[in-house]
Write a protein that binds this DNA or RNA. Sequence first.
DNA 1: AGGCGCTTGTGAAGACGTGCACAAATCGCG
DNA 2: CGCGATTTGTGCACGTCTTCACAAGCGCCT
Lengths: 256, 256
Amino acid sequence: MSQHRHPGAPGRAGAVPALPDLPEATVARLPEYLRALHNLAETGHETVPSEGLASAAGVNSAKLRKDLSHLGSYGTRGVGYDVALLIDQIEYVLGLTQRRAVALVGVGNLGHALAGYDGFASRGFRIAALLDADPARVGEEINGLVVRHIDELPRIAVEESIAIGVIATPAQAAQRVADQLVAVGVTSILNFAPCVLSVPEGVDVRKVDLAIELQILSFHEHRKASLTALPATGGSALTALPGGFGATDTQEAIGT
Amino acid sequence: MSQHRHPGAPGRAGAVPALPDLPEATVARLPEYLRALHNLAETGHETVPSEGLASAAGVNSAKLRKDLSHLGSYGTRGVGYDVALLIDQIEYVLGLTQRRAVALVGVGNLGHALAGYDGFASRGFRIAALLDADPARVGEEINGLVVRHIDELPRIAVEESIAIGVIATPAQAAQRVADQLVAVGVTSILNFAPCVLSVPEGVDVRKVDLAIELQILSFHEHRKASLTALPATGGSALTALPGGFGATDTQEAIGT
DNA sequence: AGGCGCTTGTGAAGACGTGCACAAATCGCG
DNA sequence: CGCGATTTGTGCACGTCTTCACAAGCGCCT
């Protein structure tokens, strides 16, 4: 293996070891690998071949190997990957060795559900604060946390060292909330409001829009309908979409 | 341009006019354009230049123009795009001229919120059924709809002509639900459960995993921290991420 | 009518992501 | 100890997406 770089041994906390810069597409898939690995670990697997992990994560095995190779991978030829070791590696790279504190702003319909979602806690995050601008909602207790007013954000951000902000407000309030988050030093935002946020350089925003997902599906429905309506030649006319596995995480037609 | 194909006039419903096949990346952005256009329409704009629409949608104007050109675009040089016309075009292409019926399976924490989310109704969809496998939840009324047992799916699917299935169950139940949806003819699934679904060819699955989104943000936090920890040269060390606007819909650093 | 400024639509180049196919490496067994 | 089976890591070719830059087209003003 010659000069294995050890991008940073998970247990040790020496000088910060400058992360390898990974392609965005790879970063977006790492969490999926991580989830699959945890499943494998729970079912008693100690090692797993790329083929196995790939199918558990819903990707092609060559892609998986290339992704893992970017982080100076820990596989053994002829054997596969050490499950526990790979979990540590990926968690280290994703920055999950510390449990990051999340502030959730907007405790309406969706916010309520997010506050009660245990997938956050079980995957490396801690909801440290629930905030809302509506005085009627302040004081309510959800899942052991009391909703506080958004104006308390500056104090809470420091106390809890908030790392990530989640916006679950109506669209019209989202930009103001984003500004408030940025003002207290938050540099990562997950936005559920259906609008574009403008933030200063260095702040990352990811957007999740449920209606958009449905609209994309609707397009494919429409397309499939228009294809089957005029089937030139019979047989296997539906040869899967041209794009194949696309940008986000569209699965299409995993064969038997 | 010669031979303007008129991919299908929205109002007319003649022979199905075979959709132009759009790049997946374009399809994923069309809903965002549509949302921005509706905003513009409400604020009284009759036309909008590509620059304006692009910034409202959070993309680069060249990309916007190329995207729109794929659908045989309706812009006027020197003026811009006709807002109303473009809305019709995009809605037609996305298959939103008919209001598609959605079945929501899994009325737990998240499912509850989705059932109450009015963004679906306002953007072309109708939640036609709420289903759950837990008898304790059957019968509950949410937002005017009664939760029914998953075993009733076959009948309901026909009655309501379900087009899209949304899975909001725990991971362990998701594959079975997917199979049931496929069995009754559903060919588009939106999956909120943290697992990979395997479905036959021709069925589209889109996955939304909230924890994954946070983990991606966590990576960027980690990376930013490791950069500022050892800043070799001062000045503009944070020259935005290498990837820039990536696969999904990561915004990064929109300037002032 | 003619010219000027503005905006669209697109060719071409470059960046990025994907997948094949194979050499290199490792293990287990005879 | 050597050989074969197996699996990783990666060079390379291909396809897709993005971005630039500019010609073509349109409206307005004189």
